[in-house]
């Protein structure tokens, strides 16, 4: 459904755009409908840049992104956004505090469904609120400060669902939420997935990626270092960077003190290629320049 092929993004930086920064290099993977793929990496690894390119918010420098076989750069914007939407980290910043939170729905109606009659539209809203397990009486007509972060984030997902989207880019959508409500948003993604939605789940939190996704893509400094089935990548990591990340995650089942430290080499991804170490499990085989800690 959505396919990235050798995608690169080079930003111009510096006072007059004189220098360049390769934020994403040679990233390629595919997400099918009814599948959640998590994109994992530490800050600055290029995850959001990938998400923004998929959403057409920034252009690819090299490579291509196709949706159902068509290059997204050639698709009419409005049609594309009826199928593909994004939800981001901070639900609070998506609402204007002086307006009621459900104004985000009205904006969708004005933009995409101006001719739909009111009763029909209300029914549609109820349906999508139901999809995200929000009680209309509890959220409609309320100001943002009267709702919790979890409710606001679910409203934004409901808003995306009004468009009958087929694909969702979810970029750190639970990082502002408490543990007690975060899991509900993850379960919601799992529900939507079982109804055919494809999801790119961007996160720095490995335990969340492990919980929701079938497949995992691990990025480091703009490169995919490892990808494959989530079970495989998490239980049998083949790339030292993945192993390092996993050994750092705090867990309730083991203590750091009981797990050996994983040294991480300084890696030069330069021209290194991804190699298939077992069916569907790809690992970058770069040179190690130097070993640290």
């Amino acid at each position: 459904m959505l396919k990235l092929d050798a995608v690169a993004k080079i930003y111009k930086v510096g006072a007059f755009g004189g220098r360049t920064l390769t934020a994403v290099d040679d990233v390629g993977f595919e997400i099918r409908s009814g599948e959640v793929v998590s994109l994992i990496g530490e800050s600055g690894s290029g995850k959001s840049t990938v998400g923004r390119m998929v959403l057409g918010l920034t252009a690819v420098t090299r490579g291509s992104i196709t949706y159902d076989g068509a290059d997204i750069a050639t698709l009419p914007r409005k049609a594309y956004y009826r199928s593909v939407q994004g939800v981001f980290q901070d639900p609070f910043s998506c609402y204007n505090p002086v307006f009621k939170a459900d104004r985000v729905f009205r904006m969708i109606k004005e933009e995409y469904f101006p001719r739909v009659a009111a009763p029909e539209w209300d029914a549609k809203i109820e349906e999508s609120l139901d999809d995200v397990r929000l009680n209309p009486a509890q959220v409609l007509g309320k100001y943002p400060h009267q709702l919790s972060g979890g409710q606001l984030q679910r409203l934004l997902i409901a808003r995306a669902l009004l468009l009958d989207i087929k694909f969702l880019v979810a970029d750190e959508i639970t990082s502002m939420l408490d543990a007690s409500t975060r899991i509900d948003v993850l379960n919601l993604l799992a529900d939507l997935k079982s109804r055919g939605l494809g999801v790119l789940f961007v996160t720095h939190d490995l335990s969340l990626g492990n919980y929701v996704s079938e497949r995992t893509v691990v990025m480091h400094r703009g490169h995919v270092v490892e990808m494959g089935l989530t079970d495989k990548v998490f239980t049998d990591p083949r790339h030292p960077y993945t192993a390092k990340l996993l050994s750092s995650v705090p867990q309730l089942t083991t203590k750091w003190d009981d797990t050996p430290a994983v040294p991480l080499d300084i890696l030069d991804y330069g021209a290194a290629a991804l190699v298939e170490v077992e069916p569907g499990h790809l690992v970058r085989q770069e040179q190690s320049l130097r070993s640290v800690n």
């Binding site: 543990a179 007690s180 409500t181 379960n187 492990n210 996993l246 995650v249 867990q251 309730l252 089942t253």
Partner: peptide, 25 residues
């Protein structure tokens, strides 16, 4: 109890097991 049981862990498979949050705020 509810807080602890709402935490996903990396060492665990969740294929057919769901965690639950705490309703309300």
């Amino acid at each position: 109890k509810l807080l602890i049981s709402s935490l996903p862990e990396v060492g665990v498979r969740y294929a057919d097991r769901k965690l639950a949050g705490i309703p309300g705020s």
